[in-house]
Design a protein around this nucleic acid. Sequence first.
RNA 1: GCCGGGAUGGCGGAACUGGUAGACGCAGCGGACUCAAAAUCCGCCGGCCGCGAGGUCGUGCGAGUUCGAUUCUCGCUCCCGGCACCA
Length: 881
Amino acid sequence: MEPVYRPERVEREAQAFWDATGAFRAVEIAGRPKYYCLSMFPYPSGKLHMGHVRNYTIGDVLTRYYRMRGYNVLQPMGWDAFGLPAENAAIANGVPPARWTYDNIAYMKSQLRSLGFAIDWARELATCKPDYYRWNQWLFLRMLEKGIAYKHTGVVNWDPVDQTVLANEQVIDGRGWRTGAVVEKREIPMYYLRITKYAEELLADLDKLPGWPERVKLMQANWIGRSEGVNFGFPYEIDGERKLLRVFTTRADTIMGVTFNAIAAEHPLAARLARDDPKLAAFVAECKAGSVMEADLATMEKKGMPTGFFCTHPLTGARVEIWVGNYVLMGYGEGAVMGVPAHDERDFAFAKKYGIPIRQVIALPGKTYSTDEWQEWYADKEHGTCVHSGKYDGLGYGEATNAIAADLKAKGLGDKQVQWRLRDWGISRQRYWGTPVPLVHCAKCGDVPVPDHDLPVVLPEDCVPDGSGNPLARRAEFVHTACPRCAGPARRETDTMDTFVDSSWYFARFASPDAGGAMVDARVDYWLPVDQYIGGIEHAILHLLYARFWSKVMRDLGLVKFGEPFANLLTQGMVLNHVFLRTDEKGKRTYFAPEELDIVHDEAGRVTGARARSDGRPVEYAGISTMSKSSRNGVDPQALIEQFGADTARFFIIFTSPPEQTLEWNDAGVEGASRFLRRVWSLAHELSAVLAAESRRRAGAYAQYAYPADWAAQHPQLAAARREMHANVKQATYDIGRQQFNTVASAAMKIYNALAAVPRAGDAAQAAAPLLHEGFSILLRVLYPIAPHIAHVLWRELGFADDPMGASWPDADLQALETDELELVLQVNGKLRGHLRVPKDADRATIEQLALGHDAVAKHADGRAPRKVVVVPGRLVNVVV
RNA sequence: GCCGGGAUGGCGGAACUGGUAGACGCAGCGGACUCAAAAUCCGCCGGCCGCGAGGUCGUGCGAGUUCGAUUCUCGCUCCCGGCACCA
């Protein structure tokens, strides 16, 4: 055995063994308990970053742990291979997205392999391959047939210079990322998926997911956003026609306080009124500037313009002026909202700004309403009652809402309605690198679906986007086609699908990656649902909601039997790093990687600024955020792996923080992980003769260790070491169960420390041989899920039977933990004043007696008599005086 | 702006159901070994007062509940994630 730990040799040896034995191939075995462990597949951005290492190490720890527990485990891997970065790379380098993507996949796969993850690579898939995305197209056509997919207009970010649609990410402070031009909103035709049809079920089924973090379920529930209210209309007449301005409100009880209504700039009525009013037309045009992002809309200054046009209050018959507001969005509900300044904080601010009347209609006992300043209670619907509201005066929120809804219904103007915040999923992208939408546009037949037998509609792989729109639309041989219905000349749809489509069902395809004639086959019934899904908390809403929706659609089509794809979810905290950038006069940002800079810190060690090494000029510090390719703050694990080995990288990332916690990257401590593994190796080497002999004596067995009855009494030091080992096995098992893996790594270190403290000079090692053997069998098995290469190689070197993946996880021997005496903490008035040794079976009265007789109690009681004695069994005594 | 989460020594973190705050590790300091350095090994290591025994303060800030609060409640501050076309 090598005297010194050489990670590269150890890792080569272990990986060769796993490859040769096909150790990670997952085969369906009827009757054996299965465990499908899935980490979110990566976007092939170029190289792995620490977030990937963290994600996949967590998955691998669970995969190997469940293998040791006897489960038939599947851990697959694939590539979320369509997406915007490939097009950005093409704009920058002229390399076709396909080639860039495949090159990145090859490199990142080699990195994943070097980390030794127990992945079944035979199931690898890439979403940019036709045999995958053809099923996106196929299911889209099924949704079209069922009315789940439909065509409708939608608003997008438009760069007027590049004449192209921009992603939200490409809009910086309201301007296009490349041109610096002010972005406009533009309405275009799009395809939508009717996720709102499933809103009720998506919300209700959250209760069927006890294995999901509460915070994720809460975020999803809030996102879906069920609210009960009233949908009703304000009658108006225009061009000789009677119409209704429809609004939805959850505060129908305040309807008598309506003093204005606001409509979106895109509302048909706004367009109509602007026709006769140049000032309004200018305002409507102004509202079109800026992005469509919710965060922008919510933070921008609320502006409005009166139209001079009035509708009628449905209950009072009063005239209510209609305003156009830049904060009202078409596509949210009806594109119109009623304005009740007295009882809505935003309406209040808007009314004060524009001098719109504020009319109090809710009162609280003991409170005085004033229009001078907004008060929290103005919006209180729990305790308020109606005032200045005629027949509704004195009613509370529920009664008033019911009465008003009934009156509106009687007039045929409205009714109660359940409204969802969730909107339908727009999947059209005016981009090249994605799944082609399988439709053909024919002048005679309209939008015609591509027949199933013509799928897939294959995306040409040699286009090079240049930032000025979709190159697919300029590819004549793609665009020009024959209408499947009338065989006449027709145009292919050139929009592609949102990449969230790709990731909405890949977990099912892993069960049957080679199914040629179907989306999935019977093997999904064996593996699905996923037993443990692991991925970043940033996916808490969108990806997970879309995957849940897609699964329900597949279920309703009879393709799968499950309605919820992920039984248990572990949301990993983000790995963060500092971000540095420069912004030019056009607002264009250039990011700098930390290694390109000299970083300036203040006395407290905080980053205050930096200079680029290349030109010595200052660079702006933009705080810390998620490691990403776009902000160039990713840390490539390659250097770490090359310098210290995969096991050190894995051990370090696990040890440094619990999985769900946000992690600010800092590699101080990597040395410690490396040192620990070297120490384990050195101790194994030092004891290899003793341990190998013990292994031979026991024929490699590691499950049962029996010690003579008087062993503990004879060898108190060894018994203490054994107690420490088993206490930590217990701890590690508990912690792995609650997915706190950093303390599993700590437990491994503590087991090592106990083992290293066992006397082993001269003949002592011989005397302690059984304990050392037991201790190593425990240490290597606890270590195995985290640092499998070294554990695998040492396991075999020391002569243990099997290999550690086939070995069972150690059981704590609870008898080894028992002691005759306990040490209790002694408190006086809740402050630590001493310790108390008591027999382990001492009763309450005895403990109280011992406590009251303790010197520290007399000293700190200051002559006062004890009023109360609190005894917490096995822990502490608190004497209250 | 809205939704969700976080804050504990110089640093990463531990503390299981309200019960010894700081496990384990990093950095630092002192020592051993060495011609020397690295590596390795041993010891110390929250602040303040004290020679010491010990005392006292201390888990982002401010209140509260409790015999006892890092843990529960209320109100703040700052940071992170998401906000529907980054993935």
